[in-house]
Simulated assay, not measured.
Amino acid sequence: MGIHRFLWLSLLILTACTGQTATVPATPTLPPPGAPTSTPVTAQSDPIVTAYYPDLPRGRTPEGYHYLGNPDAPVTIMVYSDFLCTTCAIYTLDLEPQVIEAFVVTGKARLVYRHLLQLGERSQLLAEASECAADHGKFWEMRHELYARYNQLYFNTRETTIDLAQGLGIPADAFSACLDAHTYRAQVEADYSAATAEGVFARPVFRIGNETLVGMPRFEALAQVIERAAQR
């Protein structure tokens, strides 16, 4: 006898014996796959990184992409990433500091950041927010803070970015005006279109020399690719 038939027969017997109506507990409704399950908290709950490798050079490539490190470094680590991407956040927070210490601080490589807008309107807003922060010299700091709180940014996205900007010393009025005017919408959309034209359809993606890595690499694998690019 199947378990479901057995349960219903048991309930009918119980009802007949007691004269009372039996009920079956409802199955709890689970959140849809991929839905954020963390409780949103305010941006001020964690310390703000006010300076992200302040001794390293920073600027923009001729195409307008942000770089960190020696602009004349022999190797460029091109990172294509989305601010709502979990794997991208893990890379930025856990692996990238090792890469920076081993290759960027030493002058062997520079980082170049590319915007992906693969997860909807919030991805677009966060990319624009990072560019608005760049107006105040805080692109890399804002980038770090956005990834540190990527799971909070599904909730109150705009308000959280404004809180982060204030924590970085950026005037809220100027930052909000930049967001509301969509000052950098065309720029980040153009970056995303260029990435798609270059064959980038996943996240994160790393282009180093003539090699491409997709997803979260091990440090050893990434280091080997960087070393090979340096020898060419």
Rank of each mutant, 00 (worst) to 15 (best):
T76S: 06
L213C: 10
R149S: 00
A127P: 07
T39K: 14
I48L: 04
G199Q: 08
D46H: 03
D55G: 11
E128F: 03
G199M: 11
Q166W: 01
R185N: 09
E128T: 03
L12C: 11
Y67R: 12
L14G: 11
A89T: 07
N151T: 12
D173F: 11
G199K: 06
D191G: 08
E159F: 09
L56F: 04
G64S: 13
T18W: 14
I100E: 02
T27W: 12
H182W: 03
A186V: 06
L68W: 03
A148Q: 01
Q187E: 11
A73M: 00
Y91L: 08
A102I: 01
S123M: 07
T87Y: 15
Q224T: 09
Y150W: 07
I170H: 06
R58T: 14
P57I: 02
Q166P: 02
E141P: 09
R58D: 03
C17S: 12
P28C: 14
Q152F: 00
S176F: 10
A133N: 02
E159S: 09
L164I: 04
T157W: 10
F219W: 04
V214C: 08
Y67E: 03
L7A: 13
A202N: 15
D191Q: 15
P25H: 10
A195Y: 06
P28A: 15
E101T: 07
A127Q: 05
A109K: 00
P54R: 14
E63V: 06
R185W: 05
S38A: 13
I48D: 02
Q152W: 02
A195K: 09
T87Q: 13
T76H: 02
V24H: 12
E159L: 08
P47A: 05
A129Y: 07
E145C: 04
P32N: 14
Y52Q: 13
I48H: 01
P31H: 12
I162V: 15
H66G: 10
L164C: 00
C17G: 06
P97I: 06
E96F: 14
P32T: 15
T76F: 01
E63Q: 15
Q187A: 11
L213E: 06
P40T: 09
R58E: 07
L95Y: 07
L168R: 03
G215S: 13
N151F: 04
S193C: 08
